[in-house]
Write a protein that binds this DNA or RNA. Structure first.
Lengths: 230, 230
DNA sequence: TCAAAAGTGTTTTACCTACACCCATGA
DNA sequence: TCATGGGTGTAGGTAAAACACTTTTGA
């Protein structure tokens, strides 16, 4: 009978959590308070427990290191270079999520593994611990790719937003400027935006209409992704 | 200093290898010769060694269990349910590939872990060991999705093929019938097919032109995948 | 001569792209 | 009244979809 080997391999989760704030795309980083890479910036990530599924581990770890709860994350890649962890063989399953920053929501690690958690602009990231820079890059590619064929960007915006805000977000993620009229046509055409009877407030120019994302219609339209004509 | 825990977690690779033969989509299965799941059908898969990267482990494992070498595989998902392996905590990184079956190529396991390896039609799979049915399904979705926006199906065909063969392959993977004229227009339009001066032989009806896949042009066109108009 | 598959074009519709001006608002 | 962004339409091109008949070949 085959028996599992006894070498000390373990696995971890790392999270690439995107947020959008002050016109900038940001990700969540922690300052590590433990070796290895003590005092370095890192993606929120830690070891999976023996009796914990990957998805649940991801939720727990994100919560413990940043205080964020109930974030829907999706797995996107597993990194397994032999020497990616200085203390042994650790492969890591990377998850990503796009979330809404409701103003300056407090980030409070609940373990001492992280000294603090902060939102960091992606265009100016510091050197990261382990292979986390590579993990971030692959995660960024993932959302850039996904946004091109699924309007998932709403997740990053406040509940009510203007079309211009939405466009800016696309421009930041795709790293190019978009045509205003074409962008609006396309977005409205999707049929997943609810126009509100409300307008922007506190701006010193013509106030823009506010929109809401219609999650139900989105689900209907984008659940069946396959397409290849008759 | 943080120390890695000592519980016996390990990881494995499982491979979903697609082939196309006699008008049928098939995957490669092995008959297991070891516990657990001795005598069951399973995806080719085994434990990763301590000093081996995931990608290299995938190559080695596929070779050892089936005799196939130099197959380009891509990772697509990692399965980590707590109880997916009866003997302990084993997460598995799943890889897929699409390959060409040059006639009845011999499959010869080089370890005794697999009693034999065979091509099995996907529409009639037996019960599989572990959570391999789930892994297969996710892999199938992956190629179905990918083929809808990238003409990767060539990998499955013989070097020279007719447009009708190509269309049948698409129909099998997408599970729907396609319009002949539209299909041909679209494929030829991609500009990645070389028309040969050769025709099909040995058929009792009008012989079709043979085509070759132009890998260089394919690479040029499909390396930059992002698109969202100005 | 028949069976079986090869091969071929046109029309309609939808979507993408490019492009420029007037409008509403608060300071 | 001015600066700032909000908001709008049209024309041209490209790709997808629907649809049916003639041609070639070997048996």
């Amino acid at each position: 009978m085959e028996v599992l080997p006894k070498f000390d391999s373990v696995f971890s989760i790392d999270c690439v959590i995107f947020g959008f704030d002050e016109g900038e795309l940001k990700i969540l980083l922690i300052e590590r308070n433990v070796e290895p890479f003590k005092d370095w910036w890192a993606l929120p990530g830690y070891l999976v427990k023996e009796n914990e599924s990957l998805d649940l581990a991801a939720e727990r770890i994100l919560y413990e290191l940043t205080g964020l709860r109930d974030i829907f994350m999706e797995q996107f890649y597993t990194f397994g270079d032999v020497d990616r962890h200085p203390q042994g063989r650790v492969i890591t399953v990377a998850y990503y999520a796009m979330i809404r920053l409701n103003g300056p929501k407090e980030l409070k690690p609940v373990t001492s593994v992280a000294r603090k958690a902060v939102w960091y602009p992606v265009k100016d990231l510091p050197k990261l611990a382990f292979d986390h820079t590579k993990i971030f890059q692959k995660g960024f590619l993932k959302i850039r790719n996904k946004i091109s064929y699924q309007p998932i960007a709403f997740e990053l915006l406040p509940e009510k937003f203007t079309l211009t805000q939405l466009q800016h977000l696309y421009e930041v993620i795709l790293n190019k400027t978009l045509d205003k009229r074409n962008f609006r046509k396309k977005m409205l055409n999707y049929g997943i935006l609810k126009e509100l009877d409300e307008k922007q407030k506190g701006v010193s120019y013509r106030a823009a209409k506010l929109y809401k994302f219609d999650r139900r219609k989105y689900a209907k339209i984008f659940q069946n992704e396959l397409s290849f004509g008759k």
